[in-house]
Write a protein that binds this DNA or RNA. Sequence first.
DNA 1: TCTGGGGTCCTAGGACCC
DNA 2: TCTGGGGTCCTAGGACCC
Length: 422
Amino acid sequence: MYALIDGNNFYVSCERVFNPALNGKPVVVLSNNDGCVISRSNEAKALGIKMGEPAFQLRETFRKHGVKIFSTNFTLYGDMSRRMHSLLADFGEDIEIYSIDEAFLHLPDNLSKEDYLALGRKIYSAVLNGIGIPTGIGIAATKTLAKIANRIAKKEKEYGNVCVLDGENEITEALKKTPIEKVWGVGRKLSVMLKTHNVGTAYDFTKLPADWVRRKMTVTGLKMQRELLGYDEIDLDDIREPKKSIATTRTFGKTTSDYGLIETAISTFAVRCAEKLQKQNSIASFITVFLRTDKHREDEPQYGNAYTMALPVATSSELELVKHAVNALREIFREGYNYKRAGVIVTGISNKKEVQPDIFYDYDFEKHERISNAINEINAKYGRDTLRLAAISPSEKWRLQRNFLSPRYTTSWDEILKVKAK
DNA sequence: TCTGGGGTCCTAGGACCC
DNA sequence: TCTGGGGTCCTAGGACCC
């Protein structure tokens, strides 16, 4: 059996932990550049605010209903996530962390329904009391069914945030009231396709012939169907496993046609990729650089391009990645366009112990590693970018706009919550 | 003025091998 | 006239997730 635990409206809940005056009020968290809504309190959802809706279109709604607005504070959310997952780990050896606010916990197989329910409530209280985040908990035999249970736990008040799906009739009932587009793995395209074949619910989907599902939806669809029928099919990569691709990409606060500015941005993204690689002890063998203009500005000339190159030697060195990223950028940069978005992606990732020296390329892996380590140590002690490559600049114009940022309550001594005595 | 960021998996089809 | 068979590896692109 699996329990799927996820934080309710996670980013909003993180903000509320340190600012209880937000309870009961409409609250939203915005994406980078304060662009789109990416987390909403229940009160904000009730106002009709949609996931991903652009903030500028909502200004009137925000004003009229006094919606509390926050910029993303990933430092805070990431730290709260780490704390939540470590609380969950107390309830079982096997935990698969699926995202910043979700984890699957492996539970013993032969408990009674009452015992699963009691365990679910215990987990709920542990997280709420431990870090102040309310959760939804779904318990069932497969991950896909646990997702469905989780949705019911949150949606139907009488469940009190915990739903156990055990027993054939109960599972059938749950599948019948789950619209097909709410099934884990069915997105916009597939739900449209399935509806034209008269599949409206998860239950209808389980009744389709397996070979039809295989043909129309590949093995992914087949696994989904089997999961709904109670066969455990989906294995997740643990989030602590090394990543297979690493990206740093940004939408600029303002568009720019200035090559120098973009080179600085790309160099900074390359350094961030290097840091992420080093953190998981990996090296990358390919680098991709892309840039594009603002696709929403139909009145302006559009251009977008990407360039992928094999690195001469797999590496995690910021010096090497910046050098090659800039070379890649020169391949695709064109004068006369206003660029809005750019990024660096590294792939072909392996463990750093597997570095293959190239006798034709002058590269001293150990020397680069010593440099990286020295930079990391200094910055860990004195703050990010205290020591940095001249190619990057911490205060450039492409920087994010974050006008509604909350303090980093849990990770910065300067920003810790202050309690005043009267 | 103003529209996020970072991932995974799967398949088809081309290049290449013997 | 007639042009094999069986494989691997890689990449782009599409679909999905939070």
